[in-house]
């Protein structure tokens, strides 16, 4: 009985600690320059007179274009989240319900044919780099699929290894792939297919980098669903695709929402890829925010307004999805 007030007090304290930066950003965005430069002020109307001047400045475009990066970020984040959750969930479902046997040898053959083919097409036959890459990939894919059917020596990998491969894509720091991706995009761009600083390029890049997380999260979630429900549908001659979309997806709703939220936040906040792969047209909000204090110096009220643009949509989305998730959790399986 003595414990409850103590726990409540600690929770309250921690809530204040986590909420304070949000509050600070919010009040700072309402401050006039004098209230910032003259030392700390905390409470509007008591310490200082709040003003909407910083917001008006932001919308009038004095401090750079906010609207376009905001729309860019929203479009890219929503598209990439939708794509990665869709395909990642499908991959996770396959890993949960089907058994894969992949020979390590066939993976090595893929690598050998892809690299060898690239060199062959590029250096010997004189194709451009992007063309050689495409051709080598087209050769390597069937080669490894056929090789996997042959009794190659060496270990056979299972579902756990496939999952680890997915997750391993996120183990090394993103900078490792960022430059390679930049080169890949610029080579493909030379063929007239623009990926750098484009909507498609950004969506593809973020989809590729979100899928491992989606696969990892959704695999654990889908594994908890009772298989008999799907078996009942199988016996009833429901095609796999309809089982997935009409039975598995509705049952997995809470997991899908949570995963979408995590993916969306990741893409919304992502800085490095956007910095390297975009220049002006498809610049996202984090790049704009990072550039703020070099624009006209440390104008914290204006920077806070920009930060509010970045934070507010995520808070709204989180609240909406959390509500959806709670209503989904009451559904669950029937035991």
């Amino acid at each position: 009985m003595m414990k409850r007030p103590l726990v409540f007090g600690l929770c309250l304290f921690w809530a204040l600690v986590t909420l304070f930066p949000l509050y600070w950003t919010f009040v700072t965005s309402l401050k006039p320059p004098t209230a910032v430069n003259g030392g700390p002020t905390y409470i509007p109307y008591v310490d200082f007179m709040p003003t909407l001047q910083a917001y008006i400045d932001a919308f009038s475009g004095i401090r750079g274009d906010f609207i376009n990066p905001f729309i860019n970020s929203a479009l890219i984040a929503v598209s990439a989240t939708a794509l990665s959750v869709t395909f990642g969930t499908m991959a996770a479902y396959a890993l949960v319900r089907f058994e894969f046997r992949i020979r390590l040898g066939s993976g090595l053959i893929f690598a050998a044919v892809a690299i060898g083919g690239f060199l062959l097409f590029n250096e010997t036959f004189g194709f451009s780099r992007a063309q050689a890459m495409g051709l080598a990939f087209l050769a390597a894919l069937p080669a490894c699929l056929i090789a996997n059917r042959l009794p190659l020596p060496g270990p056979v990998l299972g579902n756990k290894d496939v999952l680890f491969w997915f997750v391993s894509q996120r183990m090394f720091p993103p900078i490792v792939t960022a430059f390679a991706l930049f080169l890949l995009y610029s080579e493909i761009g030379k063929e007239g297919f623009k990926l750098l600083d484009s909507y498609l390029g950004m969506v593809l890049c973020y989809t590729a980098f979100s899928i491992p997380i989606v696969v990892w999260l959704m695999r654990d979630f889908l594994a908890t669903l009772p298989v008999e429900i799907e078996e009942a549908a199988l016996v009833d001659d429901v095609p796999r695709m309809r089982i997935f979309f009409e039975i598995v997806v509705p049952m997995a709703r809470p997991g899908l929402i949570a995963t979408s939220l995590i993916t969306l936040a990741f893409i919304w906040n992502e800085f490095l890829f956007s910095l390297l792969l975009t220049t002006s047209n498809w610049q996202t909000l984090p790049i704009l925010l990072a550039g703020q204090n070099s624009y006209r110096g440390d104008e914290w009220w204006a920077i806070s307004v920009a930060a509010m643009f970045g934070i507010a949509p995520m808070i709204v989305v989180a609240m909406l999805l959390a509500k959806l998730m709670r209503s989904g959790l009451t559904l669950g399986g029937i035991r």
Binding site: P226, E228, I229, E231, A232, V235, D236, L331, I334
Partner: peptide, 13 residues
């Protein structure tokens, strides 16, 4: 065939 399972296996939604 039609199958009836121990844990009912109804579509919860």
């Amino acid at each position: 065939c039609a199958m009836v399972f121990q844990n009912y296996a109804l579509y919860p939604h």
